[in-house]
Amino acid sequence: MKISETELPGVGRRYTASFPGGGQFVVVIHNDGRRRTYWRGSADDDSEPLFELTEPQAERLAEVFDGSYFTPVSEDLEDAFDDAPIRWIDIDGNSPVAGASIRETRLRSETGVSILAIRRDDRTVSNPDPDTEIRTGDTLVVVGTEEAYDELDRVLGR
């Protein structure tokens, strides 16, 4: 695939990607950051407009093309947020919240900790709703401030 760049004074820059199988994908990057995209069957055809993107949208799409959008969980995820680290809490049979729904545990209002996901067997219940039951053997993925974790330890009796 060949990509050529053209400066367009007063407008911005244009990139034309020519595919070996025929057809050209054209991206016009405007000076204000907007991107317009076009497609044409061959170099001599008129271009058909495809879609328009803002700069942040284009960056996310670029990550998808790049293969870097779905970042694997890394070692340092716990420190992803400076003031609100992510923790993994194992629930054993003695835990006061085992067998209760998230709503019943009142964890969020009592402690300030939010449950992002629940690891159960080899599945992940992401973004669980308030009626989701917490079971023995679950691992709660939670986020909160240090103070919230102190409260959580008190509630869980740890």
């Binding site: 367009l8 004074p9 007063g10 407008v11 008129d46």
Partner: peptide, 28 residues
């Protein structure tokens, strides 16, 4: 007029085609 031409090129979609660099080059 660069201002009018640049806007029309975008509106008409010619901006993606070969004539746009010829037009804008001549305008420069």
């Amino acid at each position: 007029s660069t201002v009018i031409i640049a806007k029309s090129l975008v509106d008409l979609g010619w901006i993606a085609d070969r004539e746009s660099q010829a037009i804008l080059g001549v305008v420069v």
